[in-house]
Design a protein around this nucleic acid. Structure first.
Lengths: 221, 221
DNA sequence: GTCTATAGTGCGATAGAC
DNA sequence: GTCTATCGCACTATAGAC
């Protein structure tokens, strides 16, 4: 699963060559990386609003003026980080789940992949959640669609499993919601799980066991 | 369960008579109510940072100057809302659970009471979660303690039930975490459940069914 | 491309009239 | 008690030197 801040920033620069004033790709990627990395770090501490561009300038090592070569307003920077990361996450999540066909295995892979991905990109996921309401309407609805999309993947798997008789009759919409809630807790309460020395694998195993206890026919557990 | 914004604000005024410059209690309660109510409304839309005191002045109907008769800085207003609401919530939650003694009933009451309370005080709960990281260290650690306290209530009930043989052997700390996560989803994703016309009762029943499927011995489900 | 310096804005907070 | 008026400051954003 080759995905990191570097990869995502490289992808962004190549897709937005026209909007960025910097000609050398290597320079652009390096600086975008520094900016996004610094912005995530500072925002996750105190929030995007509380982060001033002076803070961002200091943390990223670029001057105020240089920052504006990469985005044209603070709002645009917010949208950049949100949409860039989200698109990448959706793509990766989908590609991993497609490998499995049997519902029970698909459900396990979906939960585990989501947790691994959110572990790898903790700051991004936290940022998506906490800063989504600061977006303008058109971008916020994209964020809501994204919440529903991830959940929809889970719901589809559950419905498939019910039809196949692997899972018993259950409210798949509500089940999808609470499964998503459990997965989100991993990156929303990092401090708690870190303090208790719970690994992402332990957490994944536990969530899967809860989900299966509820969804599986007793005879198959 | 007599608890509302009015009750909490009245309680605050009586406890902080010394700090508030207004002499008439009736006036003070009315204005504190207007301020807190407006602050919650505005903060839950765009965040506490994004809410200016001019916005708050407009929404509450008090002038900038008048606002400063009730708090001495924006930071103090944040702490006021956080600590006031949180203390009240903890007290109410504890008092309701004490009524039950049998582990299974206690668990059901704990989940249901928490959900009802978060329904009644949606804005407060949302505010606690989203604005906690803006607090100074000493206040933020109080917020973290509160997260652990609510979760601790659940964990204690689970441990009791395991000892009594009502629940099977399970990792009660992890179970407490994910139960808390499911309960929190109710007020963190209000837009989603409202859109789907899910009532708090439906949600409570569902969460309880998930928890019991996992925690109960198969024979007792 | 990146810098420094600064323009222009809106903020939190306060003083003083009523 | 509450208001209006205003202060000083920190912010976003930009202009112009290098």
């Amino acid at each position: 699963m080759a995905v990191s801040i570097d990869d995502l920033c490289g992808e962004y620069v190549r897709e937005h060559r026209a909007d960025i004033r910097i000609k050398k790709e290597a320079v652009a990627v390096r600086n975008v990386r520094a900016i996004v990395s610094a912005a995530l770090k500072l925002s996750c501490r105190k929030g995007f609003d509380a982060m001033s561009l002076r803070d961002l300038s200091r943390e990223s090592g670029l001057s105020m003026g240089a920052l504006y070569s990469y985005f044209s307003s603070k709002e645009e920077l917010l949208v950049l980080i949100q949409s860039l990361g989200r698109k990448a996450v959706e793509r990766i999540l989908r590609s991993h789940i497609e490998g499995e066909s049997e519902p029970r295995a698909r459900l396990r892979v979906a939960v585990r992949t989501h947790l691994y991905l959110s572990e790898l990109l903790k700051d991004w996921f936290y940022f998506f959640f906490m800063e989504a309401r600061r977006l303008e309407d058109r971008f916020r609805s994209a964020a809501m669609q994204s919440e529903l999309l991830t959940e929809g993947i889970i719901i589809d798997i559950l419905d498939e499993g019910i039809r196949a008789g692997v899972f018993h009759e259950l409210n798949s919409a509500l089940a999808g919601s609470v499964i998503k809630a459990m997965m989100q807790d991993w990156y929303l309460k990092r401090w708690k799980y870190a303090r208790r020395r719970i690994s992402v694998d332990e957490y994944a195993d536990f969530v899967i066991s809860v989900v299966e206890a509820f969804a599986m026919e007793p005879a198959m557990v």
